[in-house]
Amino acid sequence: MTEELIIAGFGGQGVLSMGKILCYSGIVQGQEVTWMPSYGPEMRGGTANVTVILSDERISSPIVGEFDTAIILNQQSMDKFEKTVKKGGTLIYDSNGITRHPERKDINIYLVDAAEEASKMDSAKTFNMIVLGGYLKIKPVVKMENVVAGIKKSLPERYHHLVPMNEKAIVRGAEIIKQIQKV
């Protein structure tokens, strides 16, 4: 199994930490992982994205031009990364703030309205975990127990009391993700 994924959105949405949690979960599961962020001036208040690769084998290039899955969380990222999904691949997006919905006909498209759900759950910080839950429902690349272990590993111990809330968000994400298009 090799999964090449890009997560793209605004700085502050938890894009990078969602990638980190996935990587930690992969390590717990015995996988090879790479986490390659965009870095530089564009991160400050602008868009942020991270390429995550999980694989059972040694990972070759940490930089890839095409992705198995793109998780898209703002319009700029839609414009930039919709076209980078492999034919037959998967695009997951949150429609909050999206003015142009995905148009490609050759990919699977899913909608996870995580921003709305996070505000319903009264915790904006669980946004990225709702997205992660949706993603893992569609692409169960790591087991749930390993994700919980991954969250624990990526959070300092003083925040471990927040783990159950994050777990709840992941479960919620898996419930609310909707299929828009199947190829």
Binding site: K20, E32, V33, T34, W35, Y39, P62
Partner: peptide, 10 residues
């Protein structure tokens, strides 16, 4: 280089 410096791996 900056890519290896900034990326995370196991």
């Amino acid at each position: 280089d900056g890519a290896i410096g900034q990326m995370m791996e196991k």
